[in-house]
């Protein structure tokens, strides 16, 4: 009785282990062990900000690419990339850290509502229907597709302005909000020294008068900033100014001349109201050092 049980169980065990061994040999998939090592280092957010399907895909790309120049994990940033480079023995490019900026400042006061939207609260749906509740058909709709797309909780709709705000500490510049915004309002810009940056917070391409009528904070394409800029960082196309983050030296002169306050500067020391002429110069000096 006992013997039969032992033989049966033992037999089943031996046969199964044999089958398992054969199966594992037959269906074995070789994976470069480096991929797993790289994946260990990556943040495992699987945000897709690098352009690859998740961290595993990015790790695979890192291992197989000849150099790491075009590869950046926006979440981990330079620190993570240098560790990846260390494992793989490859060079890493010193990519500038980036951050999302919202290029619309048409808050509720600046942009009076002319229509009332009553559909599903979703920017993609609203934008396929019409230009927006205000006269400006370029600006933010405020239904928060960007906030919904952000997996880090780094972008939220401010209920008083109706516009999205980026929380700098949380933003990993993964670009999910940029893809989510149907109006292409959000841009990934160079984070800048001490997180200081200057950008045109408007994407309205209407003629000046039309733009101004629909929003008092709109860029009207008046060219004042372009003339003021000594570094040729500002270009105007279709009645809209754009500041190149590569060329901008953060001198803050354009901000001062903008008649509609469409140019925004972030994280600068407050300007001295009395000596408008002097302050940009001093700023320029300090910023030169920073760069």
């Amino acid at each position: 009785m006992i013997l039969i049980a032992i033989i049966t169980l033992g037999g089943i065990g031996i046969i199964s282990s044999g089958l398992l061994y054969l199966a594992s040999r037959k269906f074995e998939v070789y994976e470069n062990p480096l991929i797993a090592q790289v994946q260990e280092i990556l943040p495992a957010a699987n945000c897709g900000g690098c352009g690859y399907p998740g961290c595993a895909g990015f790790a695979d790309a890192c291992v197989n690419a000849p150099s790491l120049e075009d590869l950046l994990c926006p979440v981990g940033g330079a620190a993570v990339m240098s560790r990846v480079a260390g494992i793989l023995g490859k060079d890493t490019a010193g990519a500038d850290p980036k951050i999302a900026v919202v290029r619309c400042n048409g808050n509720c006061e600046a942009r009076p509502h002319v229509n009332q939207y009553d559909g599903a609260g979703n920017c993609a749906i609203a934008s396929s229907l019409y230009g927006g509740e205000t006269g400006c058909s370029y600006g933010c709709l405020g239904y928060g597709d960007c906030a919904a797309a952000c997996t880090f909780g780094a972008i939220i709709i401010n209920s008083s302005t109706g516009l999205p705000e980026v929380i700098e500490d949380k933003c990993t510049s993964c670009g999910a909000c940029v893809k989510a915004c149907p109006k292409n309002i959000i841009e990934l810009r160079k984070k800048g020294p001490k997180s200081r940056r200057i950008f045109v917070s408007c994407v309205n391409r209407d003629k000046g008068g039309v733009a101004r009528k629909s929003c008092s904070n709109a860029c009207i394409g008046c060219n004042k900033c372009e003339k003021e800029c000594k570094f040729e960082a500002i270009t105007i196309t279709d009645n809209l100014a754009y500041i190149s983050s590569q060329k901008c030296r953060l001198c803050r002169k354009c901000t001062a001349v903008c008649p509609t306050n469409a140019i925004h500067e972030l994280n600068f020391a407050p300007r001295k109201e009395t000596s408008l002429e002097d302050s940009p110069k001093t700023d320029e000096k300090t910023n030169q050092k920073n760069i």
Partner: peptide, 13 residues
């Protein structure tokens, strides 16, 4: 539910 709102948008996509 705004069924068609979403379906129309998804169809375009």
């Amino acid at each position: 539910r705004p069924l068609l709102d979403y379906i129309r948008s998804g169809k375009g996509k």
